[in-house]
């Protein structure tokens, strides 16, 4: 159920420090323009319309 309805989109980036929790909870997300979607048929964030999305920020290292 969770796997079917939740699509994890992972945004790759670099940067390090301590995470800030709970900030922004309740806010609406801005227009999201990510590039190079892979391992999905989605081509833009709009393709996830109506789905719960888990965005994980990570770097390759």
């Amino acid at each position: 159920m969770i796997q079917r309805r939740l699509l994890a989109v992972t945004a790759l980036l670099a940067g390090l420090a301590l995470p800030a929790a709970s900030q922004g909870v309740g806010s609406r997300i801005p227009d999201i323009a990510l590039e190079g979607y892979s391992q999905t048929e989605a081509k833009s964030f709009e393709d996830f319309y109506g789905r719960a999305v888990l965005i994980e920020f990570f770097a390759y290292w």
């Binding site: 989109v9 992972t10 945004a11 980036l13 670099a14 940067g15 995470p19 900030q23 990510l34």
Partner: peptide
């Protein structure tokens, strides 16, 4: 699925400071 946050714009909007 994954994608690139070119220039880190989304990361900055969320104020992500640690990964």
């Amino acid at each position: 699925p994954y994608a690139y946050d070119k220039g880190g714009k989304l990361k900055r909007w969320f104020g992500v400071s640690g990964i």
